[in-house]
Simulated scan of single mutants.
Amino acid sequence: MIGDKGEIAAVLFGYPYHAPAAKGRANKILWVAKDAQGAADLGPDDRLTIKASLAGTNEVATRSVAGGPGPSDIDMPKPGCWKFSLSWPGHSDSLDIEYLAG
């Protein structure tokens, strides 16, 4: 899955995802930045910040991934279509990910 601006890709492992996470399964996402060299230069204190909004509601959840784009487990509090607004040093993008009822 590619971000709306093409700045990031989300490689979804174990899709479909569930909220809450299904027993024995994680909602794993590998975030791959288009600027891989720039992402490789990020330090452990840099972060990929995710502001997620649940479609049709006022529900917002914030998550972060230490070290910027890379491997993560991203759980959402409720099922539905979540719009992820992503930012990391010098970059931003967005994409939608569906979470099914757990």
Rank of each mutant, 00 (worst) to 15 (best):
V32C: 01
G43D: 04
E98M: 13
Y17I: 03
F84V: 04
I50S: 00
S92R: 14
D75Q: 10
I29P: 05
G43N: 09
K28F: 04
Y99G: 07
K23W: 02
A36K: 09
H18V: 07
V32G: 00
V11T: 11
A26R: 13
S85L: 12
L86D: 14
N27T: 12
G56L: 08
P16L: 06
A10K: 03
R25F: 15
D73A: 11
G56M: 07
T57W: 00
D45T: 12
V65T: 06
W82M: 09
P77G: 11
V60Y: 05
A101F: 08
P71I: 10
K23S: 09
G90V: 08
P20C: 08
M1C: 01
G67C: 11
G14M: 05
A26E: 15
G70R: 12
G90N: 12
L12M: 14
S53Y: 04
K78F: 09
I2N: 08
P20I: 07
E98V: 14
A101I: 08
E98P: 04
G80N: 13
A33N: 04
M76V: 10
P77F: 07
E59C: 01
S53D: 08
V65E: 06
D45K: 14
D35G: 01
F13A: 10
H18R: 15
A36P: 00
R63S: 15
H91Q: 13
R25L: 15
T57Y: 00
W88A: 04
Y17P: 06
S64V: 03
I97D: 04
G38F: 00
D96W: 13
G70A: 09
D45G: 02
W82F: 10
G68S: 05
N58S: 15
D96M: 12
D93Q: 06
G68L: 05
L54Q: 03
P71F: 13
R63T: 12
S92G: 11
S92A: 15
K23F: 06
G38K: 01
A9V: 05
G43P: 02
